[in-house]
Every structure is written in structure tokens, then in C-alpha cells.
């Protein structure tokens, strides 16, 4: 019997849930640090984007993240099925235990984990498509041997990672300008702001819950884990939310921070995909 137990138990599955979730949180920290550079300056952001796309290890990280993402979802579906099956006859009346004692940590965020999770599941493919594939930023790997129609980076600085085969001025692609342009559309910004609120709701419960699941909770640290998790969530989700919010409101315009000398290159960036070939 013992040999069959292992991870295929409710505890094992919750640990897997927590570990995959925390791994995605680590990714979010890096992603946020990268994105916030856009608020610093468009050139800084473009430079960072170029630096990232030139790293061959990024593709490995992307595949790893995809696997973690899918594991998290499959695990959630399996756990949910078990949870629904665990109570076949519902209550006539059910109230939160929190109405009786504040010892309960139940919140609306913890109650809606499934729904916020589904929302994030819908948002992530859209987001990856929107900024990675739809807008052709590094749609071909710079070192893939193919001549990429676009290259991440600032044209005027002569960044060209696809080799000397083509002229930099024609291949340069201004990601900062593209992101700014998209976020000036209230509809696009609205989607991103809403998604970040939902991500925040998911993380509001998830951080302390994941730490409890992996066994990091202890009477001495309980308050720290719960409030630390909530403050961390506000910082992360709030940080992501700031970017579309500031650009939409016009408080920050990364495109303007790019030198006017790049105007010619900006025109190149608006040339439809494939023309650069």
C-alpha cells in the first residue's frame, strides 16, 4: 500500500499546486522587473528586450513555464473534481465560518480562486499572442538562421541580432513604441488592468495558502505569512497594473522618451510584417 501513495494524494497534489504556483510567482517577479523598465524609459526597455531575446536559455525557461502552467491547471482540475465529489449532497443553508469566528481566513479572494484562475487561464494565452506573436516581436529567433522580419531593439542604435545579413535599419523593431501604442487604446488597457486585478485576487489567497501547503506555516510566522503574502500581492499585481494605467492616463509616455531621431525607425516599425524581408 505504502509504495502506491506518494504524490497521488490530496496532500501531494496540494504540494504540487503550491510549488508550481510559487514557481510562477518567481517568474512574475522577473517579468515585473523587466516590464517596469518601460516606465523608466523606452530605450531601456528595448535594450532589455533585446538582451532577453538574445539568450538561448530563454526558450528553455519558456518551455519550463508552460509545463508548470499546465501542471498547475491539470492539478487544479483534478483537485476540484475530488472536492466536488467529497460533498455530493449540498447544504440547505451554508454560511461562512468567519461569521462565527475571526479565526477563519476565508475571504472573497479565497472563495473565488477557481474563477480568478479561469480568468488568468484565458488571459495568459491572449497576452502571449498579443505581445509576442500578434505583434511580431522576435517571432523568429534572432539566431535561428532565418532572416527575421523583425528584431527586438532600437533601430537607431544599430541593434541587429539576426546577423549582418540584413541592414539594421530595416529590421529594427520598437517594442516600447508598440506596447505604448497598444496601451493607449482604452479597450486593451482595460483588459490588462482587469486581468491584473483578477491576478491580484488569485494571489491574495495563493501566497499564504501555498506556503501553508508546502508546510512553511507555523504559529510563530502565521501572521507574517498571511500579511506578507497580501502585501507582496499588492506590490506585484499593482506593479503590473501601473504600466497600462500610467500609459493610458498619459502620465508616462515611453514613446516620447525615445529620441526624436528615431522617428524614421518608428515608421519602419509600422511597416506590416514581412515587408522587411
Amino acid at each position: 500500500m505504502i509504495s502506491k501513495l506518494r504524490f497521488n494524494t490530496v496532500v501531494g497534489k496540494k504540494v504540487l499546486m503550491a510549488v508550481t504556483g510559487l514557481a510562477m510567482v518567481v517568474f512574475l517577479i522577473g517579468h515585473l522587473i523587466g516590464n517596469l523598465q518601460l516606465l523608466w524609459s523606452g530605450a531601456q526597455f528595448n535594450g532589455y528586450a533585446h538582451f532577453l531575446t538574445a539568450q538561448p536559455v530563454v526558450i528553455l525557461i519558456e518551455l519550463g513555464l508552460l509545463a508548470i502552467f499546465l501542471l498547475h491547471i491539470v492539478d487544479a482540475v483534478v483537485l476540484l473534481q475530488g472536492n466536488y465529489a467529497a460533498r455530493p449532497v449540498p447544504y440547505h443553508t451554508k454560511k461562512w465560518g468567519r461569521s462565527k469566528s475571526k479565526r477563519s481566513k476565508k475571504t472573497w479572494a479565497s472563495t473565488m480562486m477557481m474563477w480568478t484562475g479561469i480568468a488568468i487561464l484565458l488571459f495568459v494565452p491572449f497576452h502571449v499572442w498579443h505581445f509576442k506573436y500578434h505583434n511580431p516581436v522576435a517571432s523568429a529567433r534572432p539566431d535561428s538562421g532565418q532572416v527575421s522580419p523583425v528584431v527586438v531593439g532600437v533601430g537607431s542604435t544599430g541593434v541587429n541580432t539576426s546577423g549582418a545579413a540584413s541592414a539594421p535599419s530595416k529590421e529594427a523593431y520598437d517594442l516600447a513604441l508598440q506596447v505604448t501604442k497598444e496601451f493607449k487604446n482604452p479597450f486593451v488597457s482595460g483588459i490588462y488592468i482587469l486581468a491584473m486585478i483578477l491576478l491580484g485576487l488569485h494571489m491574495y489567497h495563493a501566497i499564504s495558502s501555498a506556503l501553508t501547503s508546502v508546510g512553511a506555516n507555523h504559529p510563530r510566522y502565521q501572521t507574517l505569512i498571511i500579511w506578507g503574502g497580501r502585501i507582496f500581492t499588492v506590490v506585484i499585481a499593482g506593479g503590473f497594473l501601473l504600466i497600462p494605467a500610467l500609459i493610458l492616463s498619459g502620465l508616462i509616455d515611453p514613446a516620447k522618451t525615445l529620441a526624436t531621431a528615431q522617428a524614421a525607425n518608428n515608421q519602419v516599425a509600422q511597416v506590416p510584417m514581412g515587408v522587411g524581408k
Binding site: A85, K106, S110, S213
Partner: peptide, 11 residues
């Protein structure tokens, strides 16, 4: 079922 760490049990 599995534990969602809501603490309703504790309450």
C-alpha cells in the same frame, strides 16, 4: 476533499 487553506475548520 483537499485543503484550500481557508481556515473555516479552525473557526
Amino acid at each position: 476533499g483537499s485543503c484550500s487553506n481557508e481556515g473555516e475548520c479552525e473557526a
